[in-house]
Amino acid sequence: MSLKTINAAPGFQDYLPKEYQDLLEDGPFFKQRKVSELGSFKEVIEEHPMCSGCAMTLFIRLVYLGLPSLEHTVICGTAGCGRLAISQGAVPFIYGNYGDTNAVASGLKRGLDIRFPDTPKDVVVMAGDGGLADIGFHGVMHSWFRKEKFTTIMLDNEVYGNTGGQDSGMTQKGMVMKMAPTGKKFEKMDMLGLAKTAGVAYTARIAPTNPTRVANTVRKAVLIAREVGPTFIQAYTSCNIEYAIPTPKVMDDARDVEKDRYGFVEYFSDDAKAYWEESEKERKRLRKAEKK
């Protein structure tokens, strides 16, 4: 099978809708685009049905930018707001049932490795806090225990935003929600701590305040997962509807939350650190060679 899979078969080019022609001519496939290039090329997602001002959508857009090889990536998701946007992207998307995303991703990754032994195929799970920390928790943990080589990205909006505002395991303690009128009863789950305990190679907690940092973190997580083991990103993607954040204030909220409690946190296992330092050296060497 050819690696140049994203080409129209002979004769069909003129019959493709404009959007697909643009993707073929000026899309992000087979080249790594940068944040500074946004707006100058055809992105894999442009329209979506998410709420106005949704921070999750911005984050998803940046994830697509950060993925190291879009043409060899499959995304797994599940019920929740995120999949409404992810399913619009021109990247294969598999909709797992609630709870089984990481089990689906495990099988998929292993299957792809057998089917394409010479081509790195990336699998990325991208789902909400309900899908990963609550209902999908067992699947997430066991994929980490088994050291499955794919990235899990949690779109942490700290609520079940799609179903009217129930508290999730990732909601802050004491938070009063529409469907949690007496307030959340227990602490926000420490998913980073759990990931570390389970032996995840690389974990990061991030808010979408710095687009380049988001894209770089995603790229790092996917590349480490490819070579070392499971990686995890917990991303603050506020629900401006359930948390009543005025649309123009969404990014202010993200900055405040980042400053007050979320921060930008990274953890590398020893293997991941060694791999990343080595690959960074190699990239620098290649850049130098290119300049010469």
Binding site: M1, S2, T5, N7, A8, A9, P10
Partner: peptide, 11 residues
């Protein structure tokens, strides 16, 4: 499966 040039067969 026919629209995209996956491989020689599709072409």
């Amino acid at each position: 499966l026919v629209l995209w040039g996956w491989n020689d067969h599709t072409n």
